[in-house]
Design a protein around this nucleic acid. Structure first.
Length: 428
DNA sequence: TCTCGTCACCGTGCTTACCC
DNA sequence: GGGTAAGCACGGTGACGAGA
């Protein structure tokens, strides 16, 4: 079914160039949603001499990872890149995040489950460690060894709290993403409507076909296992069936005008794809937020402001959004922790006075609030077992890349989830 | 014998409708 | 906003048959 050609605002997602070349975890949640999961994948890229080289990746997910978590990764990234100036930190209520991502709205009676899924996805994504021995750096126009997490977060420890959530991107990752040529845009609503395998294929096609009209020959095994995340143990005929279904969905959405899985010799399959009409109508840049849509709005309303004064306050501090977000959080934390008796006049007066003084350097955040933040941060620490796996993976991918043993190990682990026991066992 | 396509089955996660 | 149940979609597996 072709997408609606309406004039309503389309939500735009943002993808990272190297990350969509390969899957971050298996598609099957039974394989991916396990503690201390390690997923290996590889992809080929043209090096500086124009020859094909191979990039090897490892994704270490201490809390496991679900293919559906990627929706939140790309969605949050798009929110950070929405304005003229990219924001390395997002501070907003979960309701704001979910409504911006189109997961909840005022007309649908949905809520609890979406909040829980968002919270769990954020937890899993925040502890992921990503390693790649040839990650494309758009600023230096070269491939580099990288190791980073995606983001850190700070949520109120009490699930019922109405305080804002804070999400801070990893500086190295964010530097790569926000650079010109480091990201690409796609239609998040279309992405959300697809199943997880089709979503990955959609992103891969969005990246590659935005630069050229046709892809003549993508290795089928590479695409189905490394890029989409099907298990290598699944017979090729079954994978072919599933990839064909995903291709058909993209043809129906006019992302592709034509696609074909074909065989050259026995056991050697390739995929061809041709760009569809989706690319000619895609809105490249997302609209900037008005003050009324600011992530601060819900926090200010919760503190007691009317809508108009809240808009004025947001406009006044539009160049210092972090300062306003921090004092909103302090005010809400004080309301929850000490009650209204904490405030001499009102929470609104406290906020305006505090943020005014803080902007002039005459007031700093209270100690009790720093202590709350410290306790919230403490929840992130890896277990001893997790630290051991991470150290082993780093050594394996970057420490001895040229040894035959490592190459052999990579071949057997490619596209698979490695058992933690085997990793720790090998290191003995 | 090998490759390939189709189908049924099971387990899991997600969406939707309904209700409070 | 939040909980629950039913139905749906999908990934993985295995069996079976057709054709080269």
């Amino acid at each position: 079914m072709p997408p609606k050609s309406n004039t309503e605002r389309r939500i735009t997602g943002a993808g990272q160039l190297s990350l969509v070349e390969h899957a971050l975890c298996p598609l099957d949640p039974r394989l991916s949603l396990v503690e201390n999961a390690v997923y290996s994948a590889c992809y080929s890229y043209p090096n500086q001499e124009g020859k094909r080289s191979q990039a090897n990746t490892r994704v270490f997910a201490p809390l496991g990872l679900s293919a559906s978590d990627e929706l939140f990764l790309w969605g949050l990234l798009s929110l950070s890149l929405r304005g003229a100036e990219p924001e390395s930190e997002l501070v907003a209520t979960p309701h704001w995040f979910l409504s911006q991502l189109g997961l909840i709205n005022q007309s649908t009676r949905r809520g609890g489950r979406q909040y829980q899924q968002f919270r769990e996805a954020i937890r899993r994504l925040s502890v992921v460690n990503y390693m790649n021995d040839a990650f494309y750096d758009p600023m230096r126009s070269e491939h580099r060894q990288v190791c980073f997490g995606f983001f850190s977060y700070s949520l109120p420890a009490e699930p019922r709290s109405s305080r804002a959530w804070k999400i801070a991107w990893d500086p190295i990752f964010f530097e790569m993403v926000q650079a010109i040529g480091g990201n690409f845009r796609f239609d998040l609503e279309q992405y959300r409507a697809l199943d997880t395998a089709s979503r990955r294929l959609f992103l891969f096609a969005s990246k590659v076909l935005s630069r050229r009209a046709q892809l003549h020959a993508v290795d089928f095994d590479q695409l189905s296992i490394d890029t989409l995340g099907f298990s290598a143990s699944v017979p090729r005929r079954v994978r072919k069936d599933k990839v064909n279904r995903a291709l058909k969905k993209l043809i129906d959405l006019q992302v592709l005008s034509e696609a074909n899985v074909y065989r050259t010799t026995t056991g050697k399959y390739f995929v061809s794809m041709t760009r569809g009409r989706y690319f000619s109508r895609q809105e490249q840049r997302a609209r900037e937020l008005s003050p009324g849509e600011s992530p601060m709005m819900e926090s200010l309303l919760a503190i007691g402001f009317e809508r108009e004064p809240a808009v004025r306050l947001i406009t006044r501090f539009r160049h210092r959004p972090r300062l306003l977000a921090e004092w909103c959080d302090i005010t809400q934390a004080a309301m929850e922790r000490f009650g209204k008796s904490f405030f001499k006049k009102s929470p609104m007066a406290f906020l305006i006075d505090s943020v005014d003084k803080a902007s002039k350097g005459n007031r700093t955040a209270p100690d009790w609030w720093e202590e709350i933040k410290r306790l919230e941060r403490a929840k992130h620490d890896l277990t001893a077992e997790g630290r051991a796996v991470f150290a082993k993976l780093q050594n394996e991918l970057f420490g001895s890349l040229n040894t035959k043993a490592t190459t052999a190990a990579r071949k057997t682990e490619k596209g698979t989830l490695t058992a933690i026991g085997s990793i720790l066992g090998n290191s003995k």
